[in-house]
């Protein structure tokens, strides 16, 4: 509690986002916030916007680049659709700079609480479900390589 710079747990960040979204009582304000978040998403470096890092949705495209340093996974991402970008921004607020275990165990139930779950269904085909699968797969992968090394 004394250490103010300590990073918040996934649950804490989720709680914070839920509180933030509770402020909006109509969908327009909520989506405007989502769009703003999309605009503020830290851009992925242009050199990573290649086929290697693309996650193809039928409706929108997502690029996702992972970095792994000191036991922590860091992602940058982008999308061609702004609402998809907003969703990425929310998800990365929770999942970025975490250990592989934290990512693997994340349930992300808060998405349901803020009523944005519809964007995380495969029928939307916006690339977000595949992106989440990729994030989890990266986490599994680095965990595996690390346990092999030790």
């Amino acid at each position: 509690m004394l250490n103010m710079t300590e990073t918040k747990s996934i649950a804490e960040v989720e709680e914070q986002i839920v509180e933030e979204f509770e402020l909006f009582d109509d969908w327009m304000d909520k989506y405007e916030h989502l769009i703003e978040m999309g605009k503020s998403l830290p851009f992925i470096e242009q050199k990573f916007k290649t086929d290697e890092f693309i996650v193809k949705g039928c409706q929108s495209l997502v690029w996702l680049h992972p970095d792994f340093e000191n036991g922590i996974l860091h992602f940058t991402a982008d999308s061609d659709a702004i609402i998809t970008k907003g969703m990425i921004a929310i998800l990365l607020r929770v999942l970025n700079d975490r250990t592989p275990d934290e990512i693997i165990n994340a349930k992300l139930e808060f998405i349901d609480k803020i009523n944005l779950k519809e964007h995380l269904t495969p029928t939307r085909a916006n690339g977000l479900v595949s992106m989440l699968n990729k994030i989890k797969a990266y986490a599994e992968q680095v965990k595996l390589t690390r346990s092999h090394k030790s």
Partner: peptide, 22 residues
């Protein structure tokens, strides 16, 4: 330059069903 997906999501919120995509 708006992405069709974004326009489609907002129209859906308004109860308007259109198709977006390819």
């Amino acid at each position: 330059t708006n992405h069709p997906y974004d326009t489609g999501v907002i129209l859906d919120k308004l109860g308007i069903a259109v198709r977006t995509g390819h």
